[in-house]
C-alpha cells in the first residue's frame, strides 16, 4: 500500500502448532487510524501483538512473514528497539501498581537513562495532556496510579505509551474494560492522536471501528477477508462474509 507506515506481508503466527493467523498482508497508512475487527478468536489480537513483537514473548510462539516499519523488516531488528518505536495499549488498564502517576508515565524515559529531569518533566506533562488526563491529575501526579478510576488508568497507560514518543500506537481493545463515558473519552482521544501517530486499534465493537477508524480490516478465522476505507467497508462490503458480519448475522 502506498504511504503505509507499517506493511504486513504474508504474516502467519503460531501458538505451538496452532496457526492463529494465516498469510495476512495488509498496510497501515501513516497518520491514520486503522481498525482491525472480527469475531472473538479471529486472530485480531494476535495480529496486533505481532506488530511490536509481543506475540513472541509468550512461550512456544512463532511468526513467519515480513512486517515492514518504514520499509524495514522489524522481525530482523532488536525487539526492544522495535517496541520503543511501536507503543501498545492493552485491553485492561495495567499501570505499574508500585508507582505514582508521574513515575508510570515517565518510566520508559527514566529507565532509558538518557534524559534530564527537565526533559522528563516536560514529557510527562505533554503525554498526560495528549492522553486528556492532565486536567484531572495535575494536582496529584505523585499519587499512586492505582488511585485512579479504570478509565483514568487506561488514559494513563496511553500517556505512558506516548511518553516514549513512539511512531505507531497499537491499541488492543482499549475500551473493553471501560464504561460508555470512559469509552467516549478514549475515542475522542484516538481521533486526536492520529495527527502525531499512526494508530492501529483492535476492536470487537463495529460501531467503534466505524466511529474512529479511517481504514478497517476484517479478519475471520485467522484470515484477512477484506480491508479498505472504513466507510466503504461498512456501506459497500465486497465480500459476503464481511456483509454478514457487519449486519450481525454472526460473530
Amino acid at each position: 500500500m502506498e504511504g503505509a507506515k507499517m506493511q504486513v506481508e504474508g504474516l502467519s503466527a503460531y501458538y505451538g502448532k496452532t496457526k492463529a493467523i494465516s498469510e495476512i498482508s495488509v498496510g497501515f497508512p501513516e497518520g491514520k487510524v486503522s481498525a482491525i475487527i472480527g469475531p472473538s478468536g479471529c486472530g485480531k489480537s494476535t495480529l496486533i501483538r505481532c506488530l511490536n513483537r509481543m506475540h513472541e514473548t509468550l512461550p512456544r510462539t512463532r511468526v513467519e512473514g515480513r512486517i515492514l516499519l518504514d520499509g524495514e523488516d522489524i522481525l530482523q531488528l532488536d525487539p526492544v528497539g522495535v517496541r520503543r518505536r511501536v507503543g501498545m495499549v492493552f485491553q485492561k488498564p495495567n499501570p505499574f501498581v508500585t508507582m505514582s502517576i508521574f513515575d508510570n508515565v515517565s518510566v520508559a524515559l527514566r529507565f532509558a537513562g538518557r534524559h534530564s529531569r527537565d526533559e522528563i518533566d516536560r514529557a510527562v506533562v505533554r503525554s498526560l495532556q495528549q492522553a486528556a488526563l492532565w486536567d484531572e491529575v495535575k494536582d496529584r501526579v505523585d499519587a499512586p496510579a492505582v488511585s485512579l478510576s479504570g478509565g483514568q488508568q487506561q488514559r494513563l497507560c496511553i500517556a505512558r505509551a506516548l511518553a516514549a514518543e513512539p511512531e505507531v500506537l497499537l491499541m488492543d481493545e482499549p475500551c473493553s474494560a471501560l464504561d460508555p463515558v470512559a469509552t467516549a473519552k478514549i475515542e475522542v482521544l484516538v481521533d486526536e492522536l492520529k495527527s502525531h501517530y499512526t494508530v492501529i486499534i483492535v476492536t470487537h465493537n463495529m460501531q467503534q471501528a466505524a466511529r474512529v477508524a479511517d481504514y478497517t480490516a476484517f479478519l475471520y478465522l485467522g484470515k484477512l477477508i477484506e480491508v479498505g476505507p472504513t466507510e466503504s467497508l461498512f456501506e459497500r462490503p465486497k465480500e459476503r462474509l464481511t456483509e454478514q458480519y457487519i449486519t450481525g448475522r454472526f460473530g
Binding site: N52, M54, T57, V80, G81, V82, R83, R84, R85, G87, M88, F90, K92, N94, P95, F96, V97, V107, A108, F111, C157, R160, A161, A164
Partner: peptide, 23 residues
C-alpha cells in the same frame, strides 16, 4: 505479579532483565 505488568513493561521497550528486576 500479574502477567499484564510484565507485558506493559516489555511493550514500552524495557529490556527483560530490567522488567524482571525493577517491575
Amino acid at each position: 505479579v500479574p502477567h499484564s505488568l510484565r507485558e506493559a513493561a516489555l511493550a514500552l521497550g524495557i529490556p527483560k532483565w530490567r522488567t524482571t528486576l525493577q517491575i
